[in-house]
Simulated assay, not measured.
Amino acid sequence: MKIHYLLLHAYGTGGTIRTVLTQAGWMAAAGHEVEIVTAVRRRTRPGFAFPEGVKVRTLVDQRAGVRPPQLQARVLRRLRGHVVPRGEPAAGYFTPEVEAAVAAWLRGLTGGILVTTRPALNLLAARHASGLVRMIAQEHMNLASHRPAVQKAIRRGYRRFDAVTVLTETDRSHYETVMPGARIIRIPNAVHPMEREPADHASTSVIAAGRLVPQKGFDLLIPAFVKATENRPDWRLRLYGTGPKQAELVTLAEPAASRVALMGRTGAFHQELAASSLYVLSSRFEGLPMVMIEAMAHGLPVVAFDCPTGPGEVITHDVDGVLVPPQDVEALARAIAELIDDEPRRRRLGAQAVRTVRAYSKGVVAPMWLELFNDLQTARRGADRRSLS
């Protein structure tokens, strides 16, 4: 079976990239012919190692000194602003040159299965992919989090796909409501490997991670942590990640610089999780927060805003973590303080967290993808036989 994964920037970092590379590695290890296609390339070295046995193709190389593709003016005029809506967070990447390069590649596909991985790429595939390939639209964010223009384009464009995969049951229900009759399938992202170094519940370290963007709510987490540790000066918050809000967050953390540190990137994040006692998820919205699930695999208790969607799909309150009302800084501060003061509770929640995330193991998730791929291939062969009869 030939499988094409189309990513925006396979050389970058982020949960979607890591998840797709993991899936591609599974399929290559299972004997399939797998290709990762990146719409753009802006780095020489990838943020994550590419899986063994997987081919990687770049459509538009935007590294300094690399000559961009030469496209005919009539092609650019036809495609300019034509597919990717402005409300898509990555819309800025999709210059006419990038849209045209992606469209040309999609039109040239002659078979196999195409997996596209964000609304912009999904919509381009819906418009331009040849009729010779089976198509799956992967959604890594919940439907309600998309802007109205993007939701409108999704409702119209996603009907061309053979299947749309979402991360949670809540999102599956939302898609089925706005796209009746479409094939909507819940397949969560997976933690791989599951065997992790146990967290240090005696540590005085709290950890959080993600892109430094408004979605992740670190502007809410920092004041909540500062309030929670007013009388607990030995505790520290280590916040991993980079992004456009870094300067603002550094300023916000300055009054408590001895307790709050923005750590940037690390190549040893799992060791940092294991050295911590508590993970906090402060997002305003999510798809399925993989870094939270990875923390739980280490046996870390999690305090999370019960935001749409994700945390409440994974965590059972006071069983394997703690949920607090969305964007409620006071409630987040109280929950952090309560767990700081209760090491036995941290250990109890963490032990159950390890059991909970077994549902997100490779052994559970990989067969879901294989079943879907095989089903689409079988359907294609049946259609081909009917066309010849």
Rank of each mutant, 00 (worst) to 15 (best):
Y5V: 07
L8E: 09
H9Q: 08
A10N: 10
G12H: 11
T16V: 14
R18W: 00
A28G: 02
A30P: 00
V37E: 13
R43Q: 10
T44D: 15
A49Y: 05
F50L: 14
P51K: 00
G53C: 06
K55F: 00
V56F: 00
R57W: 13
D61R: 12
Q62E: 15
R63M: 04
A64M: 10
A73Q: 15
R77L: 13
L79F: 12
V84T: 15
P89V: 05
A90Q: 06
A91E: 04
G92H: 00
F94G: 02
F94D: 09
E99R: 09
E99Y: 08
V102F: 15
A103I: 01
A104E: 08
G108F: 14
G112T: 07
V115Q: 09
V115S: 05
T116H: 06
G131H: 10
G131T: 02
R134N: 02
A137F: 14
Q138A: 10
E139Q: 14
H140E: 03
N142L: 09
P148T: 12
V150T: 06
A153Y: 00
R155D: 08
R156G: 01
G157K: 06
Y158V: 03
V166T: 07
L167A: 08
S173P: 00
T177K: 06
V178N: 03
V178T: 09
G181I: 13
I187C: 07
A190V: 05
M194R: 03
A199M: 03
A199T: 07
A199R: 08
S203H: 13
S205Y: 01
I207S: 05
L212Q: 11
G217Q: 11
D219T: 09
D219Y: 08
I222C: 06
P223D: 11
P223I: 11
A224Q: 03
A224V: 00
F225P: 13
V226C: 10
A228G: 02
A228L: 04
E230T: 07
R232E: 11
W235P: 01
R238I: 04
L239Q: 11
T242V: 15
Q246V: 06
E248M: 01
T251V: 10
P255W: 15
A257F: 12
R259E: 09
L262F: 12
M263I: 14
T266A: 05
A268I: 02
F269S: 02
S277C: 11
S277M: 06
L278I: 14
Y279E: 08
E286P: 07
L288N: 10
M290F: 01
V291H: 06
G299V: 08
L300R: 13
P308A: 13
P311W: 03
E313C: 05
H317M: 11
L323M: 14
V324S: 10
V329W: 04
V329G: 09
A331C: 07
A331Q: 13
A337F: 04
E338Q: 14
D342L: 03
E343A: 09
P344Y: 07
R347N: 13
R355G: 03
A359W: 15
A359Y: 15
G363Y: 05
P367V: 07
P367R: 01
W369A: 14
L370M: 09
E371N: 05
E371M: 08
D375Y: 09
D375Q: 15
L376I: 15
R386G: 03
